[in-house]
């Protein structure tokens, strides 16, 4: 860290969609992202955690410049994404998506798939491209005999390896991983997580890792941002956030991590039955209908936003709750 600008930064970004409710009814506005600021430094990993509908995948699309924000800006090396140019941007920021079954072209061989970005970006001669693609496939641990296979001949884990090789073949600065392991089996998930970590060291890249699994994020990320209904409700160094959460939603997410400890039973999250609906964001603090610690002020006033640096929480009672969550009685069962 220091004087260098972050490799990739999001500044006060908003994104709305219009959702149809049928032929004759007026469209409704869906507030996917409501004023998010985040940044990831060189060779660091930023985790973004949240449940469906919290805007994390919309944010990923904006980070990849696939979608322009309605307000705010995405900065790559301090320059606005709008001025960087699509081709240049895509060479420097590459995605790994969740579903390795739908992101590979079924008619291309594995080697062709990994060579394709080089061709689009006119890098090198055909031979050089092939050598480079083969080297990447070696690095991700795919056997040589698979190079001329088609995706349907590979397992889910192998496909995700191909997707990672394809993302890295252009030597990007940033990798955006949107739930890269949630479609994989447990034993394979660990292989892919280890691979991502190794390759980060090897290539010196920055990673934005989007997940709903806090245990995975804790394992992989330097910083973490917890999102709820389009806002970052808590952010900070991963270890701090995990050890002493300052937002009741983060606390609930942490409690939801089920460790394989017999006898601990199931935690009582006390979240009630309300369900977050991004087309109908509650006034005040968006989390208040589910919050076990809510007070009258929570339904009327929006809590102050997270600070950009350090460990921040978007909660009226962050300090009080931090104390309560850190108390011995509240220590997340089965940790340590």
């Amino acid at each position: 860290m220091g004087l260098e600008p972050p490799v990739l930064a999001v500044e006060n970004v908003f994104k709305r969609y219009q959702v149809s409710r049928g032929l004759l009814r007026p469209k409704r506005s869906l507030q996917a992202v409501r004023g998010v600021s985040l940044s990831v430094d060189k060779q660091r990993t930023l985790g973004i955690v949240g449940e469906s509908g919290c805007g994390k995948s919309t944010l990923a699309r904006m980070l990849l410049n696939l979608e322009r924000p309605d307000e705010g800006d995405i900065l790559l090396d301090g320059r606005s994404a709008g001025t960087v140019g699509r081709l240049d941007f895509s060479a420097r920021v590459q995605p790994v998506f969740q579903d390795p079954y739908s992101t590979l072209n079924p008619r291309r061989t594995i080697l062709e798939t990994v060579m394709h970005p080089l061709r689009v970006h006119a890098r090198g001669e055909r031979n050089a491209r092939e050598t480079r693609a083969a080297r990447l496939l070696d690095l991700v641990g795919l056997p040589r005999r698979a190079h001329h296979a088609h995706p349907n001949q590979l397992s889910g884990g192998q496909r995700q390896r191909v997707a990672i090789a394809r993302a890295l073949v252009l030597e990007p600065q940033v990798l955006i991983c949107d739930e890269p392991t949630s479609a994989l089996d447990v034993s394979i998930q660990a292989q892919i997580l280890n691979l991502i970590q190794e390759l980060q060291k090897e290539f010196g890249i920055s990673i934005v890792f989007i997940s709903h699994n806090l245990a995975v994020v804790e394992h992989l990320c330097d910083e973490v941002a917890v999102m709820y209904l389009g806002r970052v409700v808590e952010n900070g160094p991963t270890a701090d956030v995990m050890a002493s959460p300052r937002h009741p939603y983060t606390k609930a997410l942490l409690d939801s991590v089920l460790t394989p400890d017999v006898g601990l039973g199931l935690p009582d999250l006390q979240l009630g039955l309300e369900f977050p609906d991004p087309t109908n964001v509650p006034p005040g603090c968006a989390f208040h209908p589910r919050c076990p610690h809510r007070e009258p002020v929570c339904s009327t006033e929006v809590p102050p936003a997270c600070a950009q640096a350090g460990h921040g929480s978007e909660c009226h009672f962050a300090d009080r709750l931090a104390g309560a969550f850190a108390g011995p009685a509240a220590v997340c069962a089965g940790r340590g």
């Binding site: 447990v186 034993s187 394979i188 998930q189 660990a190 292989q191 997580l193 280890n194 970590q197 190794e198 806090l214 245990a215 995975v216 804790e218 394992h219 992989l220 990320c221 330097d222 991963t238 270890a239 995990m242 942490l254 991590v257 460790t259 394989p260 997340c332 089965g334 940790r335 340590g336």
Partner: peptide, 17 residues
Amino acid sequence: SMPKPGNGRGEPLQAIP
């Protein structure tokens, strides 16, 4: 091969090859 909460960053997971 399960990541354990509270273990923090770093150590590679013991994947099944």
